[in-house]
Design a protein around this nucleic acid. Structure first.
Length: 199
DNA sequence: CGGCTGATTCGCT
DNA sequence: GCGAATCAGCCGC
């Protein structure tokens, strides 16, 4: 686990360009080891959120609340928050400490632990084709907020980079409140992948 | 404090 | 296709 050389190094997350990191995370393997259950999934959909110059970000223009404090941590940890009071959403914090950038993981393609995901979600097949659903399937909740992505509970493994022709770029989902920033092309997903949300 | 809105999903009409 | 579930954050009373 923590000794797995395939785990993405912390330096990967601390780059200054959250949009680039969001693209690079497509195809990587998200792993959780919670409640004694190992679950793996290929990241097939992400969105970038930037602390400065992006009104869609919770920490837009330096806003600080108890919830957004996580995003100001150094890149390489998890930002988990509750949406609509019901669903957990999982983000990867990027950039250096003090810069509130993050990548929302919106969908994964199950690789291992499908039985656990089915049991957690009560779905037979589409257990992780959305940001709230994948958290439920992987067992992600508030206990993982601020946790490093190289812990015993949660990490991301490197994988072959996806080909550019398979990467689709679009606007982000559900951020209409952000005005012109809602038009930023900061959502990325794998072309023709059955697990991408909102098919 | 009440009311509204949201990086969503599910179930019923 | 619409509304409920139900919490953090914000704004007005």
């Amino acid at each position: 686990m923590v000794n797995n050389i395939n785990i993405i190094p912390k330096s990967f997350y601390q780059g200054d360009d959250v949009v680039k990191i969001a693209k690079q995370l497509i195809g990587k393997t998200l792993v959780t080891h919670l409640d004694g259950q190992l679950c793996k999934g290929k990241i097939v959909e992400t969105e970038a959120y930037r602390g400065w110059g992006d009104k869609a970000c919770h920490a837009s223009e330096g806003k600080r609340t108890p919830r957004t404090e996580t995003m100001y941590l150094a890149g390489g940890c998890a930002y988990v928050y509750l949406c609509y009071g019901i669903h957990h959403l999982f983000n990867v914090v990027t950039n250096v400490a003090g810069k509130a950038d993050a990548v929302l993981i919106r969908a994964i393609e199950p690789i291992e632990g499908m039985d656990s995901m089915v049991a957690r979600t009560n779905h037979q097949t589409k257990v992780s084709n959305g940001p709230g659903k994948l958290c439920k399937a992987m067992g992600i909740d508030m206990r993982l907020n601020k946790k490093e992505l190289n812990s015993e509970l949660l990490w991301i493994e490197d994988a072959k980079a996806v080909e550019l022709k398979d990467l689709v770029i679009s606007t982000r989902v559900g951020v209409g409140y952000a005005g012109e920033d809602a038009l930023l092309p900061w959502r990325f997903y794998l072309k023709d992948n059955d697990w991408v949300s909102k098919l």
